[in-house]
Structures are given as C-alpha cells and as structure tokens.
Write a protein that binds this DNA or RNA. Structure first.
Lengths: 367, 367
DNA sequence: AAAGTAAAAGAGACCGGTCTCATATTCGAA
DNA sequence: TTCGAATATGAGACCGGTCTCTTTTACTTT
C-alpha cells in the first residue's frame, strides 16, 4: 500500500485540483478555507488532498497575504534565566494565538542586534519583541517600526521610541532596597552590573545604556543622596559581563581596605558569583557582607543563608509583551502603551546590619 | 531631506531596476549577488537600491530557491536551564552559519510536538532539531525526514529513527552514581523523574518514553540487580512534572517509615525541590539523606552542602546537534551519526554513608 | 415558465524574488 | 579587419499560494 513513497517534490494545490477534477482556484478555496464551495466539491478536494498527502506551503501563502505568522524576538542571552523565563512567556502566548517565534540572541551587542533586526525584517516577521542592548542606539529599531511592523520593547524602554513597552519598576525596587540597607546602617554599598562602559568606569547614570539598569542605579544614587551620602557613584561597578569578570571585580572589591558592607547584584548570575566569592574569602553573609540580588532565581531560596532578592514578574513581562504585540497585529491601534509591572522585595536572610554599624549610625545622625 | 517617508509598500527589485534604468533581471543579479554584471551597472543598481532603501524579501527568495535559511527547534521547555543552555549552543552555531532559529516548546506533550513539526514543515524550515517527548511515538518525525528535510535528535534518541543523534552517556552516569551510593551502604535509593506514566506508577523501564531518562533508570536498576538488590523498581518515582508535584512526592517519600536514604534527581529542577523538602522536614544532607542530581545547574555549587551532580556537556549537546544539522544542509550525506558525549560526576558534599549503614552492609552480605 | 438573484466554479493576474534562455555587446586572436 | 568566444543584459517563465473578476449553475419568485 505504501509502494508510492512521497516524492521530494511537494504536492501543490494544482496537483490536488487536477486529481479532484476541479480548477486550481476552487481547490485553493477548500484548502485555504476561504470563499464559498459546494459540499460535494469540498469533499472531493479534501479526499484528493489526503490521498496525495498535500502539505500547504506557508511561505507561498505568506507571499501573497503579506503575513508570515511569525514574531521575531531579540534578547540578550537565552541562557540567562531571566530571558529564558521571559521567552517562555512570549512563546506561550504566541502558540495560543497561532504565531511562531523566531529567536535571536544579541549577546547584548548592538551590532549583532542590528543584524538580527535586519534578518528578521527580511524574513518578514509580522512583529518584533526586542530587549534593546542600548537605549541610546535605536536607529535600527525606529527603522523597523517605520517599515510598518509593530515593535514591543521588553524590560528596557527608550524615550526615543514611541512604542509599546513592558518594564518592571526597577527604580522603585532599587530605592526600596537601598533605603533598607541605609536604615540598617550600611554606608559602603556597592552596586554591580554587567553593563559596561567604554573605559569600564562608572561616572554617571547616563553612562549606562541599558534602561532597566540605569533606572536602578538612578534609584540607588538618588536615595543615597537623599540620605546625605555623596559620591556613591564610586561604588557603582560595571563590566561584570561574565562570571569570570564578576569574580575578579568582586574579589578586588572585597579585598580592598575600604570594602563594601553590602552589595547589590544587578542580576542573579552576578548575585551567584558574589555569593561564591564571599564564601571563598571566608566572609559570612550577612554578618560580614549583606547581599541583595535582582531576579528571584530558583537557587536564591536554597542557599545558606537564603538571599534577599527583588522579585520581578519575569514570565508576565514576556507574556504581556507578547499580548501587546498580538493586539497590534490584530489591528489595535492608538497610543503606545507603557506597562510597568510591580516588583517585590523578598526578604530572606542575606541582609543584616553591618559589623561597624556604630560608625554608620553616627553618620546617619550627621545631617 | 527626510520629507519622503518610506511608503509601507515595500521596494522591490523591479522598482530598483526602473530607477537604475536596467532590466529586472540585471538588478536582481546585483541585489542577489549572483550571475555576472559589469561594474558600471553594479554601481548604478547599488546606488538606486540605497536611494530607495531597498530591503530584500527573504520570503520571496525562499519561494524560488526552496531554502528558507531557518532551522526549527523543538524542545520540552525553554525555561528549563538544561534546554535554555542547549538552545544557546544551537543558536550560536546557527548565527555563525547564517541560519536563523524558529523555537517551539512542546511542553513534553506529543500532541503539541506533532503540531509543532507540522507548523515548522509548513513554514519550510530547512532542517529540524528535536528533543522528542516520546521515543515510542515518532511517526511525525519519520514523516518529517521523509519530506527530505534533515532531522537531528537532541538528548533523546529513537531506535525507530535512523537519523543523526546527540546524546549524553546517561546510562553510564547513572551506573556510576548508583555504584557509589551502594558502596557507601545505601540500599533504599529513590530515583525521581518528571517523566510520567498513564497511571503514575513505574513498573519497568519500558514504561518510560523519554530515552535519556529510560537509559538512566536502566543503568540504575542494572547496577542494583548486579549488587543483588531485587525489586528496586519500587523505588523509581515518576510524575515530578512541576515543583508542586515534586514537593508532594518527595514529602510523602521522606515521611514514610521506609524512607529512602538517598535520592537521585533526574534534573536540576527536581534536585532543587528535593533539597527544599529535605530542609523543610528538618533532614540534614548528607547525614540523613544523600542527594545526587543530574545537570550541573549553577546553584548546585553554592548550597550548604553543595550538591553532587552529573555534569552533562549541555551547551555542546546543542552545539553538536546544530553542527551536524548544518553539515547535512550543506550536502553531507552518509550514515546517521550517533554522537554520545561523556558526562562527569562532580563530587561535592551531598553524599555520605547512610545513618543505618550497619543494617545496610548486612544486607550486602546476604547473597 | 421566464426572469432575477444568489451561489459555485473557473481563468488568470499577482506577490517578489530566481533562473533559463535568447540577444547584444565586448574583446582577443587570426 | 573580421570572426568567434566570452561576457553582459534583457525578456519572461516560474515557485505555490491568494484573490479578483467573469462565467456558469442553481434556486427563488411571480
């Protein structure tokens, strides 16, 4: 019965039409599910299609309809649990709504991101979800929107881009944990991020091109300033791009005579490395060093002590972005939405008053 | 200067040709980078393309060439660090070789997987990398290969499918850790996996459809049998599909009078949950309970105690699969490759002799 | 039974590229 | 100078669908 192996040359509507004894147009109507056809013909065509094992060619379909049924997603690094969870949110919505996801990693490099956008546009994705590497460099994104395809920004916004954006309230979260640390008496608080600057030094928030991180640093510095602490810019460290880099930076930091009494890690990959270095150097958390990490990664609840984190609704970040995009794709228009999802500080046990908190509380009384 | 906003209707080769004053065919030659053209014409066309901001339509190109430049990837769950790391390996190779990745999560459900394959085939991906949910149910995969598009199996093989396959040597790894546990005196060793059976009970390895996991269980049971332990099938627990399920199963297991003295977790998500439950119940690892987990997730080195794991070369698993696929795409043919990558047991501190090791060694003397 | 209308089917253009084949041009060798 | 080969360009079919427009068929209506 199977002596007729499917030829590699694929079966087309024309083949089905011929077999069913109808015109190509009619067969296409049945197969494509549009227009009006009689029941008799529908059955004949369906039977012929089954007999021939007809497989529609979506490419050809996209050609004429102009819709490819795909959405392009550009994230920094799918390996990072933050992005993999967000992407899960995106793919779930995509599947439910009949879209398919093309995924590209930018490696947080603008050049790669540009190439990615170009590729996706050339492949005629219906829309884009991007987590831009640099807020300041978004010409390629602007161009993408100009081509008429909707764009949604994920986790990082851009003033220059008037498009749907889904963010976590990073500044607020940073302010909260900074206040907490200050109240406990910490004065030497380091903020550590993967974002880098040309000379690997931090001077002002404007040096940071990743929106979410910049807002956090602004919140951190703002609260410090309110509390009368000046020059906290020196405590912001950039360039923790790999675990190895992070290891080096944290080790240097913790070995210096004026070592920080608390560290804020900008993501869970960094947080993990800080934890490791602390242990390596024989420092006890939280007695010798307080640690707060962004992203409630699974491991943070299971260490000794468990780590206090900023919980971001990462899955919902992706989910919301995808829903917004699908909405646009289905014709919703109007002003760009800026959705800001609430974060939450999960207090665990990696934060305590610093050992030298006396000096610190004196400082507190100064102003 | 920018008073001429790009019309949404895209610029085609025909438009460029007209502007450059050449035929469509010639313009296409320049733009497509094929055939021979004079320098003068090339410059003219290039200039016209730039002036018009021509963006090639890959869809149309794929239409005629039959190659879409995309590879379809179907994994269980991108949120699982195992898959996100493997996918990272795949996407890296894809980018380097000029391919783009379409990602679909199967949720380990064969129905979803089938739909995914159909979608990807309809979108005319050039090739597929799949981590099949069930080894026994691969008709749809067979069909995919029959359509002429190469398929590479990731982490899970299938005897029924004679295609390139990349696996970790799961059986060997399971045998190693089982021997270790037995040598320490453990007799009540539980194996816990997410794979499920219709009635949520395990009787024999054939109940397990996920190849990698079945091989591990076979290794586990085989070594136990060698050591004279019978009926260890009862110690294999299935259905740890979510952290909640896992929590319930592990709690029941550890509260039973005949509680296991050691648990082997089939992935890091399960391992984490076992760790949490152990702590909840006030059990000390490794004194009260030994724990070994598959997958060297980042958190495993940072707990107290750190967890002994089976390190799989996950990134290389994905990378190798992608390289194999790209090879096929570039015309390599010949017998199907079965690549088995070595795993490694990373000894940390979550394994020790059981508290009641005396009774255990007696048992050991029995046969 | 004739006319009028709605439903069904067919013919063929079209989407935006590629590619074959025919024609025109250029160049070197005889 | 002239011919032949090599190189450049043009015309148009083609990929596999969708979709408009026209013709044919079926069903009301009076």
């Amino acid at each position: 019965m199977d002596q007729n192996p499917t030829r590699s040359a694929s079966v087309t509507v024309a083949d089905v039409a011929r077999k069913a004894g109808v015109s190509k147009a009619t067969a296409a109507r049945v197969l494509g599910g549009y227009g009006t056809v009689s029941d008799r013909v529908r059955d004949a065509v369906t039977a012929a299609a089954r007999a021939l094992d007809y497989q529609p060619n979506e490419l050809a379909r996209s050609m004429t309809t102009g819709r490819s049924g795909t959405i392009g997603v550009v994230v920094g690094d799918i390996e990072n649990p933050f992005f993999s969870l967000a992407v899960r949110g995106i793919t779930d919505v995509a599947r439910q709504t009949g879209f398919t996801v093309v995924l590209i990693n930018s490696g947080e490099d603008v050049g790669t991101e540009k190439a990615a956008i170009r590729t996706l546009l050339a492949k005629r994705v219906d829309g884009l979800i991007v987590s831009p590497a640099k807020e300041s460099d978004v010409g390629h994104l602007k161009e993408a929107t100009r081509s008429g395809r909707p764009l949604v920004l994920l986790d990082r916004g851009s003033e220059a881009l008037n498009v749907d954006t889904v963010l976590a309230d990073d500044r607020h979260a940073a302010e909260g944990i900074t206040r907490r640390l200050l109240a406990l008496g910490h004065r030497r608080i380091a903020y550590l991020t993967a974002c880098d600057t040309p000379d690997h030094c931090f001077r002002a928030p404007d040096d940071i091109n990743t929106g979410s991180v910049r807002r956090r640093i602004e919140g951190f510095l703002g609260v410090c300033r309110e509390a009368g602490l000046q020059g906290m810019e020196d405590w912001v460290h950039v360039g923790a791009v790999t675990p190895e880099h992070t290891h080096r930076i944290v080790t240097a930091m913790l070995k210096s005579p004026q070592r920080p009494t608390a560290i804020i890690a900008s993501d869970s990959v960094i947080g993990l490395e800080v934890f490791k270095v602390g242990r390596e150097l024989g420092l006890t958390i939280p007695d010798d060093l307080s640690l707060v990490s962004f992203h409630d990664a699974d491991w943070t609840s299971v260490t000794t002590p468990p780590v206090t984190v900023v919980r971001q609704p990462v899955y919902r970040l992706g989910e919301t972005a995808a829903k917004l995009l699908v909405g646009r794709l289905n014709g919703t228009d109007g002003e760009a939405n800026r959705v800001v999802l609430r974060t939450e500080v999960v207090e665990r046990a990696s934060v305590a008053a610093p050992a030298d908190s006396v000096g610190a509380s004196e400082l507190h009384r100064e102003p």
